[in-house]
C-alpha cells in the first residue's frame, strides 16, 4: 500500500519535471569541467586532435561531433528497449556510421575544401570513443530527452577542449587566429612561429598542460 503511494508520487514528480530542471542542468553542465569527456573520462582523444592544427577545421569537427552525438543518442534511446544486448555494439555502430556518412556527404556537397582538409578524420568520428562511450553509458539506459541533454553536454565539453588546443596551436604555430594574422596586425612582423606546434608533439603537450591546469583548479587527483 505504502509503496504504491510512493510510486504514484514519483510518477507525478517525473511528469511535472520542468524542461530544464536542476537535475537536467547538471546533466548538461557536468561534462564542461567536473566530468569532462577528454580530460577526466579519457574519451574521444583519438581522431579529433589531428585536426587541431587550425581553428576552422576544428570548429567544423566539433559541430559534426555535436550533430552525430545528439542524433545517435536520440535514436539509440528511442529504440533502446528493442535492442538485444548481445548485438548492441553492432546496432550502435550501424546508427553512428549512418549518421557520420550523412555528415561526410553533406560536407562533400557544400564545403568541398573543408572535406578535403578534414580527409579521413570525418569518417573516423565513427570510432571516436566519445560517441560510443556515451551511448553505452547513458543512452542505453535513459529516456530520449535526458539522453539528448547528456550528448549535448558531452559534445560541448569535448568541443571546447579541442578548440582551445587548436587556438594555441594556430596562434603559436602559424601566428594567426582563424586565419587572421594577429602578430602582423599588432606590428610584430617576423614573429618566430614554432614548428613543434604544427606537429603532433604540440597537441600532446598542450593537452597535457590543459589537464594540469584544470586539475590544479578543481583539485581532482588520479591514483
Amino acid at each position: 500500500m505504502s509503496t504504491e503511494v510512493l510510486d504514484k508520487k514519483i510518477k507525478k514528480e517525473k511528469i511535472s519535471e520542468p524542461l530544464l530542471s536542476k537535475r537536467r542542468k547538471k546533466i548538461i553542465s557536468d561534462p564542461f569541467n567536473d566530468d569532462n569527456p577528454i580530460t577526466i573520462q579519457v574519451l574521444g582523444i583519438c581522431s579529433a586532435l589531428a585536426v587541431t592544427i587550425k581553428m576552422e577545421p576544428t570548429i567544423i569537427m566539433a559541430i559534426s561531433v555535436v550533430f552525430v552525438m545528439i542524433f545517435s543518442s536520440l535514436i539509440t534511446s528511442v529504440i533502446r528497449n528493442y535492442i538485444p544486448t548481445r548485438v548492441r555494439i553492432i546496432v550502435q555502430m550501424a546508427i553512428i556510421a549512418s549518421l557520420v556518412t550523412l555528415v561526410s556527404e553533406f560536407l562533400r556537397a557544400f564545403n568541398y575544401e573543408m572535406f578535403k582538409t578534414l580527409g579521413a578524420f570525418v569518417g573516423l568520428i565513427i570510432t571516436n570513443c566519445i560517441v560510443m562511450g556515451r551511448l553505452e553509458a547513458y543512452a542505453m539506459g535513459n529516456k530520449p530527452y535526458d539522453s539528448i541533454l547528456d550528448a549535448f553536454g558531452n559534445a560541448i565539453g569535448y568541443g571546447w577542449i579541442i578548440i582551445t588546443v587548436a587556438f594555441f596551436r594556430e596562434l603559436l604555430g602559424s601566428g594567426s587566429v582563424l586565419g587572421f594574422k594577429v602578430f602582423e596586425f599588432i606590428g610584430w612582423e617576423n614573429f618566430p612561429t614554432n614548428g613543434l606546434m604544427v606537429d603532433s608533439v604540440g597537441a600532446f603537450i598542450i593537452i597535457g598542460l590543459i589537464i594540469w591546469i584544470q586539475r590544479s583548479i578543481s583539485g581532482y587527483v588520479e591514483n
Binding site: 580530460t39 597535457g208 589537464i211 584544470q214 586539475r215
Partner: peptide, 13 residues
C-alpha cells in the same frame, strides 16, 4: 595535478 593522464600526455609528446 599531473598524476595519471596529464603526465601521460606530456610523455606521449
Amino acid at each position: 595535478g599531473l598524476r595519471g593522464l596529464g603526465i601521460t600526455f606530456l610523455l606521449t609528446g
